[in-house]
């Protein structure tokens, strides 16, 4: 992989250049939280961000979008005219989340909507230092070797910039003169020290390796009832999780009755209607069943299917769930903790 250096004070100049390629998004502070916002004004950029409310999946699978428009009996897929986008500030755990979405959406039955947005979205990674809710080291997602176009590693006065794709290479070439192609031994040293130091910063450690077995053994556990009693079925955990892909489908029709569109909207298996079928039968009527499914899918099913849990340790569920149902509390209780 190609590695370059970028002096920190050039970052905004560089992001400004990237606007020639597409819309540039990055971490923006909103009250006491962060979001990935449009950097129409580059001064909005705030690299101190640790986790955004919604993950970068919102660029690849928007919360609501139209899959096709129809007129009488002809269907026009809404795949053209999607904008090029640069998303700056994507942390390693989230890049792993995107790699999981790539597998999910592109391997079996490739999804053209995901594929097209993915192709048009440049992922610019940024290194981070964990807080007490991050556990990406436990999930082995604290470094990303691939899945990004460029990755910026913060080393005080400069970034080490890893070029991860041919698009990334194109983007560098838009303003190559800002970058320094010579990496010195001392830079390498600095990077190695930073890595070792960062590893020590993980305060939260969760061992997920035996989760498939533990989930299986806990299938009838009263824990699920207990969690179900607390859960508000608000679905927030699904919205914020970088690897939750479920959606609903809705048709919108114009008053003329012959024109309209079919839309896809984020959905959550925590919602009561999620498994409801015609005739009123609900396969997961109880909240306890739905909480169990969420965790089974995340911590067991994905391991069976993709060899890896679908949790990347970003801590969003810990940050978000109003009643403290999250990977940390659920895993520790499943393992017999309090």
């Amino acid at each position: 992989m190609k590695v370059l250096k970028l002096k920190k004070h050039y970052l905004k100049d560089y992001l400004n250049v990237l606007r020639n390629w597409g819309e540039v998004y990055g971490p923006v502070k909103q009250e006491d939280k962060y979001i990935y916002g449009l950097l129409d004004d580059l001064d909005k950029l705030d690299t101190r961000m640790l986790r955004t409310i919604l993950p970068a999946k919102k660029f690849l699978v928007p919360p609501r979008f139209s899959t096709f428009t129809f007129k009488d009996h002809s269907y026009e897929p809404e795949l053209n005219n999607l904008p090029n986008r640069v998303v700056f500030g994507v942390h390693p755990c989230e890049i792993h989340g995107i790699v999981i979405l790539d597998k999910f959406f592109l391997e079996r039955f490739p999804d053209p909507y995901y594929g097209e947005r993915r192709r048009r979205t440049a992922i610019l990674g940024l290194s981070c230092v964990p807080d007490d809710k991050c556990f990406a080291k436990s999930t082995n997602t604290h470094f990303a070797e691939f899945g990004f176009d460029l990755a910026f590693n913060d080393l005080d006065d400069f970034y080490l910039v890893w070029v991860g794709s041919s698009l990334g290479d194109d983007l560098i070439r838009l303003k190559l003169e800002l970058f320094d192609e010579e990496i010195k031994q001392s830079d390498l040293q600095k990077y190695m020290e930073w890595r070792a130091w960062r590893d020590t910063q993980y305060k939260l450690n969760l061992d997920l390796t035996a989760m498939p077995d533990i989930m299986e053994l806990n299938y009838e556990s009263p824990l699920w009832e207990k969690l179900g009693d607390k859960c508000l079925a608000c679905g927030a955990c699904s919205m914020v999780c970088p690897t939750c892909p479920c959606y609903n489908v809705q048709d919108q029709i114009r008053p003329n009755k012959t024109e309209g569109k079919r839309e896809r909207l984020w959905d959550s298996c925590m919602y009561k209607q999620f498994a409801l079928v015609a005739g009123g039968h609900n396969f997961r009527e109880k909240r306890s069943q739905r909480v169990r499914l969420w965790y089974t899918h995340k911590l067991k099913a994905f391991i069976t299917e993709f060899g890896k849990a679908a949790c990347v340790g970003c801590g969003r569920c810990i940050d978000t769930c109003p009643v403290e149902i999250n990977v940390k509390t659920v895993v520790s209780e499943l393992k017999g903790g309090k």
Binding site: D111, V249, A275, H297, T304, E305
Partner: peptide
Amino acid sequence: LERRMHCGVGKCGHCVIGSIYTCI
């Protein structure tokens, strides 16, 4: 078997039972 289905191709998640997708 029958489940709620919105895609048929293992994406929308509605037909999931434990570790499997009823649709695929």
